[in-house]
């Protein structure tokens, strides 16, 4: 088996198109997860203990089961109960929920990382609760949450090949299809790995720079 460059260039347009779908899936999935995470985090901080309990159990349940199983449940099992969703919708819903639970933990940890004394200073200055969150707590929680948020962005991106199993035309799905059509697997799968690498690495580096920039903007001294 030899590497064939002509074949590589021949399939490149389809692979790039699939890359677009992969990025789209990761991006939309991440945006949904960011919002779901916020809702789940708030759901664990309500004044009602029963609500907090239920939301926490749901979060634990989703975190303790594999993404692939959840994906199959939404795409294959749900229709048998009359809930028919397209592959894309199932994918976005599942990724949003699954990673939303992780992000809710990131948010929770970040909020708890803001010292209680900051709340007291706000109370002593007579700030409203909303203003305390907006001007004091969230700006301090954000840099704490940022590394975790970045990790899950890259994490979602790297989990998108799972979507191939339900027929979302992302990179892995396209590589599978090309393999089936041409009986050549070396080039398509190598390209999948390579494309993931050249996107993940700069993304991780960019996130680290962003963390440093946020820290600097907030006057943190670098140790």
């Amino acid at each position: 088996m030899e590497w064939r460059w002509d074949f590589t260039f021949e399939i490149l347009p389809r692979m790039l198109w699939a890359t677009g779908n992969t990025l789209l899936a990761a991006g939309i999935g991440y945006l949904i997860a960011l919002v779901v995470g916020l809702i789940l985090m708030l759901g664990q901080r309500t004044p009602y203990r029963i609500v907090n309990f239920i939301v926490r159990e749901v979060v634990e349940f989703i975190r303790s089961t594999p993404l692939l199983v959840q994906l199959f449940f939404v795409f294959f099992v749900a229709p048998q109960f009359g809930i028919k969703l397209t592959a894309w919708t199932s994918a976005m819903l599942t990724i949003g929920l699954h990673f939303g639970t992780y992000l809710s933990e990131v948010y929770r940890g970040a909020l708890e990382g803001v010292p209680k004394a900051q709340w007291e200073a706000c109370r002593a200055l007579n700030f409203s609760t909303a203003y305390t969150y907006r001007r004091v707590v969230l700006p301090q929680a954000f840099p704490i949450a940022l590394p975790g948020m970045g990790n899950y962005l890259v994490g979602i991106f790297k989990d998108t090949p799972l979507l191939a199993t339900i027929g979302v035309a992302e990179l892995m799905h396209t590589a599978n299809a090309l393999g089936a059509e041409t009986y050549r697997y070396l080039e398509p799968y190598t390209m999948v790995g390579f494309i993931f690498l050249i996107i993940s690495l700069p993304a991780a580096m960019g996130l680290r720079r962003l963390e440093a920039a946020v820290a600097k903007a907030q006057g943190k001294v670098k140790h």
């Binding site: 007291e120 002593a124 200055l125 409203s128 907030q218």
Partner: peptide, 26 residues
């Protein structure tokens, strides 16, 4: 008004911002 043992300044704001936030908002 209260001054705390551990100061409790807002670390993401300058000295001046620390002093103008509450007068402006409250």
């Amino acid at each position: 008004g209260m001054v705390f043992q551990q100061f409790n300044l807002f670390p993401h704001m300058t000295a001046l911002q620390n002093c103008i936030e509450a007068p402006m908002q409250v």
